[in-house]
Design a protein around this nucleic acid. Sequence first.
DNA 1: ATGAAAGCGCTAACAA
DNA 2: TTGTTAGCGCTTTCAT
Lengths: 340, 340
Amino acid sequence: MDPRPARRPTLADVARIAGTSTTVVSYVVNGTNRPVAPATRERVRAAIAQLDYRPNRAARALRVRSQRFIGLVVPATADPFYVAFADEIQASAMRRGYLTLTGSSGFNPDQEAALLEGLVDEEAAGVILVGLGESRDLRAVLESSPVPAVFLHHRPAGLSGPLVTIADREWARRATEHLLGHGHTELALLTHADDDGPVGMRMRGFRDAVEAAGIEPSLWRTDGYDRQAASRAVMTALEGGAAVPRGLVVTTDELAFGALHALAALRIDVPGDVAVISMDGVRETRTSVPELSTVAEPFAAMGEAAVSLLLDGDGDGDRVFDCELVLRDSCGCGRYADLA
Amino acid sequence: MDPRPARRPTLADVARIAGTSTTVVSYVVNGTNRPVAPATRERVRAAIAQLDYRPNRAARALRVRSQRFIGLVVPATADPFYVAFADEIQASAMRRGYLTLTGSSGFNPDQEAALLEGLVDEEAAGVILVGLGESRDLRAVLESSPVPAVFLHHRPAGLSGPLVTIADREWARRATEHLLGHGHTELALLTHADDDGPVGMRMRGFRDAVEAAGIEPSLWRTDGYDRQAASRAVMTALEGGAAVPRGLVVTTDELAFGALHALAALRIDVPGDVAVISMDGVRETRTSVPELSTVAEPFAAMGEAAVSLLLDGDGDGDRVFDCELVLRDSCGCGRYADLA
DNA sequence: ATGAAAGCGCTAACAA
DNA sequence: TTGTTAGCGCTTTCAT
């Protein structure tokens, strides 16, 4: 009924057919810079093709103590921001012959540590940690393991490893300055955290700009990281009597989508009544209603850099990437503005 | 500088400390239903704790020919529909002590086959295939490997393995009937494929409903699976002179988001001018502008079922799940309708 | 340029 | 109930 193959061919099988030893076959398979006579190499190649030989990764891992996949831990795969990184990382890893084991911690430190531990147990060739919070456990796991780690977007205090990121504070300032440039002086900031992470830095960049302009902004805090929390926060603020600001800066695209939802539900026009700008630059900003002005991070370049740092071992310094200020309808600079 | 641990403790280390053999330790670690004296078990436990022993998965895999992770192949992680499944699958697998290796094929058959091959090479305990298209390669890989497969959402012709899905045709009919119930007779369908997969079935369900109502609908086709393609399709149709329908049925939420974008850009009011309804029930439908009426699939139950089929080995029959018709603003049934 | 052989850490058949 | 031991398939040292 079930035509299971008798047994997958092994290195020894190939060696026998090619009339040589497993050593030589191993050299050929791994392209090691060990000397192999061209004729021998050819026979081995033929044998491999004939048997449809594929190496057993577990056996290899048992020897070299490392698998052909990397681990990726993100806080949430429901947030397109992390997905954007995950996609690029997967593609970059695959180009190098590595698969990617992705885990979502759901912003839960225990889950995060459990995931990382699993990755270490599986002997991942390396792990990329995106936007993790602080955690004692994490540090313990990382330090007691030989698995190299690279941080993307954020490196929690106390952990070591190269970081790939952007200048959050500076770009938040620039985004805010753009709104100020529209002439808006009643500004609000919608954000979640006020920490030492990227979001906290964006808050500071916002403050840099409003302070320089001598403006006293409103501050709206969400009780969660996702768009639904952001929608609730805006609803609560506005229904609670807060004045509708002329400009709204949001620290992440995800939260901005929630804001757009709440404003639409309350029949507040964007950008007519409020101009909105945020940060991240996820693909969805191109098709949201209205299209969202944002600071776009170079996801592809950053993902590639993280993988390269991990697998190619080229350098271990931090890398800070440039962003692009993308102006669309939500702040009144978009292509559909004139249709209004 | 880098305090690498000398060497991870092995089974033999534990056995030595506990004053017993590796066999017994193996029994204890794996909780096999082999007999072990309580006292011995205790000593082994203590030794494990003392050494902070964690089994080497590669060595185990080399013996038992299967790793403690499952593979998941989806067409796109940029589409929240697949992410919804991926999240649930990851959670279900983790509950059973398995990690999840996720790969995105980008709707590319070659990439798809390569991913699957990698998963098989890594000796995944099983693979879950979501919404894959047809592919000779896939079949070859699947049949020549002992790795069990479960299909979610769609099982391409010619492949075998249990399928977890919904009654696409029936639910598409119901969604269409809801719009007909609004009294709309000028209907359009926005869709991508016309195949034997879920989307094709949804088209048939739509036809079932309009034919029963004696209506001649418009058909709008996208040239891609994502919201941007859908937005382009709607723009093209409408700018090309097509009449604005009173009701628009969309075969997936992802495409519906693109439709909402295009309609907003063209200043066509939803639901005032067109009522929109779609299928899938991704989280984003709750915060889109406007909130989207949709047929919600039970992602959690379906993901759990797929993992259970794979790892618990309970039955191998197909499972068809029930959906829920969720009515919101986009068809005029939502909570904000009265604010208009 | 090639090969023999020693393990990597674990499981399980078999013996005691 | 416990222990001995033979591999799983591969890499790599050391000889040749």
